[in-house]
Each structure stands twice: as C-alpha cells, then as structure tokens.
Computed example of a mutant assay.
Amino acid sequence: MSLTAHIPSHRKPRRNAPKTALRAGVAGGVLSTIAVAGAAGPAQAEPVTQTIEMPTITAGLSTAVAASAQATQQVAQDLQTQAQEDAAAATAAKTAKKAKAEAVRKAEAKKKAEAAAKAKAEAAERASRSTARTTLSATSGSSTGTAASTSSSSSSSSSSSATGSAAAVIAFAQAQVGDAYVPGGTGPNSWDCSGLVQAAFRSVNIDLPRVSQSQSTAGTQVSLSNLQPGDILYWGGAGSAYHVGIYVGNGQFVGAQNSSTGVVQRPLSYDPPSGAVRVL
C-alpha cells in the first residue's frame, strides 16, 4: 500500500460531458448574443450618422419650390396679359362708342343740311313761280282779245285732236284729280308728280323712269308753243327737273302739285312750265 493512499486526493473530479456541453452551449449563446448585440448596435446608429441622404431630400424640395415659383410667375404673367387685354377691349369699346357718336352727329348734321337745302330750294321754287305768274299776268293783261281768242281756239283744236294712247293717258290723269299728294306716292289714291305721270303712261303700256329728272328727258324735246295733248311738261332744266305734269289740251295740265292742293287740273298760267317732251 502506498504511503499516500489514505490521503484524500485534492484534484477536482472530472466533470461529466453533458455538463461541459451545456456550459459550452450557454457560453456560445452568450457569445452569440454579444455578437448580435454588437452587430445590432452600429445598425441602429446608422440612420443617425448617415446624413449624406439629406442633400437628396433638399434637392427635391428645391425642385418643388422652383416649380411653384415658376407656376406663380406664370399666373402673374397670365393676370398681366388678361389685364392688358381687358384694357385694350375697354379702349376699343370707348373708341367705337366715340366713333358711333361722331357718325350720328355727322348724320344729323347732314340731315339738317339737306332739310335746309330742300327748304331753300322750295322757297326759291315758290319765288320763281310767283315771279313767273306775275310776268304772265302782266303779259296776259297787255294781250289783245284777238290773241286770246286765237290761243283758245288753238287749245281747243289740240284738245279735240287727242285720240288713242294720248286720250287714254289724259283720261287716267284726269281721273286722279282730287287725290292726295304724298312724296314718293305711286297710287292708287295718293301720288307725287312723277308717280302720277309714270302710272298714266303705264296705262298704255309705256314704261317711264320713276323720277322727274329722268322723265324730263324721256322723249323728244318740244316747244311750249307747239304742245300736244299727252305731252309731258317739266319744271326746271331738262335732266334736272324738279316737277312734272301732263298737258291735257285747252292750255291746261294735270299734275300732283303739293300736299296742299293734291292732284289738280290747272291752266298753264297757274304754274308755267319750263319745257316739254313728247313720248307718244
């Protein structure tokens, strides 16, 4: 027997394998946890330290701000354009209104001038007729009874010679005696001078111009000393006559004189004509 056999051994007993493996596993797990924690630590801090992403966000914001500024500028330009267009439209409207007022003023002035000219012409016509009547009256007073008888006989002869179309024209004109005088009137119950003459000749299918100026040159010019029934009498110049009538014989005529007398039959001495034309 050994001398030391009775002394207990101070060596630690060997641990069994399961406990060793368990401890190894726990240690491994702790180390793994530490490793994971170490790995997770920097990952969680990364959003804080990686500030290089901020310029991207700032650039996008700058683009949006620039776009907004451009849109605002465009709106401002549109408003300015609209304001300019409105101002131009207002100016045009004002100009048009002024032009219209000026046109109305000129038209009124022209109308007044025409009315004044017409009144002056009528006054001159009345004065001329009055002078002619005075002259004719003086001439008639100095004429002999023989000359008057000869004239009357000649007129009667002319009247009795009216036949055919001339007789029809005279009959139509005499049938309108007593009708009203209306400027521009063409019948059947109101007439102006040229409207009556035109209608009388239309009754025998002869178309004459509508106005006295043209009717005074519609036929062959004849002397007032050589009148025949149916001749057209005119007052004023040939081509510029202001009045017409129809010679009916016996030194008389029928005409739509004026609004006071209407259509009348009067002797030539009532209103001596300037000339005559023969259509028939």
Rank of each mutant, 00 (worst) to 15 (best):
Q44I: 13
S203H: 10
G275H: 08
L196P: 03
V204E: 15
A124S: 09
A166V: 04
R278Q: 08
V197E: 01
S190W: 01
A40E: 04
T56N: 08
A147W: 06
Q80W: 01
D231V: 09
G230E: 12
Q174P: 01
P55G: 05
F253C: 08
A117L: 06
A107D: 14
S151Y: 10
P272F: 09
Q176K: 15
N250H: 05
A99K: 00
A69K: 15
V177L: 03
E46Y: 12
V75K: 11
G25R: 11
Y181G: 12
G185P: 06
T163S: 14
L227F: 04
A89S: 13
H10D: 10
G237N: 11
A96Y: 00
G255Q: 15
D231F: 07
Y181N: 11
A218N: 14
S212H: 10
D207I: 06
E108A: 14
N16C: 05
S155L: 04
A101W: 03
P267M: 09
A89C: 02
L227N: 06
T81E: 09
R202G: 02
I232A: 08
S157Q: 04
A123G: 13
S140Y: 07
H6L: 14
T186L: 01
N258S: 15
S214T: 11
D86E: 15
A241I: 02
A5Q: 14
D78L: 11
V211H: 03
N250G: 15
K111Q: 06
